[in-house]
């Protein structure tokens, strides 16, 4: 079997909240392979944000090993983390997180700029990506001139610009109405169809159902890891009947 793209080996993450130790991730292990579409589901406090931060190389595990594309992220310094985020990951955030003072083209160019690509190439790729998400006619607009769904499409274009190994979508529909949510989820499915690896982080089961595989977290532990079809039976819902 080929090497996983994302591999968690007994990953733990503990925080100190005053005197108490909080185990946000408690011995989590899973592997995500190329061209998978995985949803990491859990209620707030389940540890999914911690997982998302670790997968996104924004944070490192307290113990255990996280391998991204075979490289041990836990051993990296801040600069290497910044580099690997730039190269391997495409972020899609709940709040879109576009830079308000820049136009769409410039926003999509940001990851390419930090990758040190020349200006002409950046322009070309950014334009191509914006066309791909259907905003080719608005490249000079500022983010606040767009609707929420359109802004999320810009952030998808930005996530794709660096041809990342993993597309990491953190509650991508959290701020959208149901119609635009479907549109954005459809887009993620298309990306998956085109051969991208997509990791979707959400608290919403119906949204998680878009994925092909579900990893369900509760209290920092994995309670289900398998195909979407079996994920919503009672025994796999953490017994809370959510």
């Amino acid at each position: 079997m080929k090497t996983p793209l994302v591999e968690f080996r007994s990953v733990c993450k503990t925080y100190y909240m005053g005197e108490d130790i909080v185990r946000a991730a408690d011995n989590i292990s899973f592997s995500i392979y190329e061209n998978e579409f995985v949803a990491i589901v859990g209620k707030s406090g389940s540890g999914k944000s911690t997982c998302m931060n670790i997968i996104g190389c924004l944070d490192v595990p307290t113990s255990g090993t996280y391998l991204l594309d075979g490289r041990d992220v836990g051993q990296m310094d801040k600069n290497e983390l910044a580099e690997i985020r730039n190269e391997k990951l495409g972020f899609i955030f709940q709040q879109y997180n576009l830079l308000p003072k820049m136009n769409l083209l410039e926003n999509v160019e940001v990851p390419l700029m930090y990758a040190g690509r020349p200006k002409g190439e950046r322009r070309r790729i950014a334009k191509e990506m914006l066309e791909k998400v259907g905003l080719g006619d608005k490249i000079r607009h500022k983010p606040n001139q767009l609707s929420g769904g359109q802004q999320q499409r810009v952030s998808i274009a930005r996530a794709l610009s660096n041809s990342p190994s993993v597309i990491l979508a953190d509650e991508p529909t959290g701020a959208l109405d149901s119609r635009t949510s479907r549109e954005v989820l459809g887009m993620l499915q298309d990306l998956h169809q085109q051969g991208n690896t997509v990791v979707l982080i959400t608290h919403d089961n119906s949204i998680a159902a878009t994925a092909e595989r579900i990893i369900r977290l509760a209290d920092g532990k994995v309670i289900y890891d398998g195909p979407t079809e079996g994920a919503f039976s009672d025994e796999h819902m953490g017994g809370t009947g959510a």
């Binding site: 996104g56 924004l58 801040k78 600069n79 910044a82 580099e83 985020r85 730039n86 190269e87 972020f91 997180n97 576009l98 830079l99 940001v110 990851p111 930090y114 990758a115 930005r158 660096n162």
Partner: peptide, 16 residues
């Protein structure tokens, strides 16, 4: 702060 966070998430090193 948020802009800085976004830039860092997208790969900006401290130096930048």
């Amino acid at each position: 702060t948020r802009e800085i966070g976004i830039r860092k998430a997208l790969g900006a090193k401290e130096r930048f």
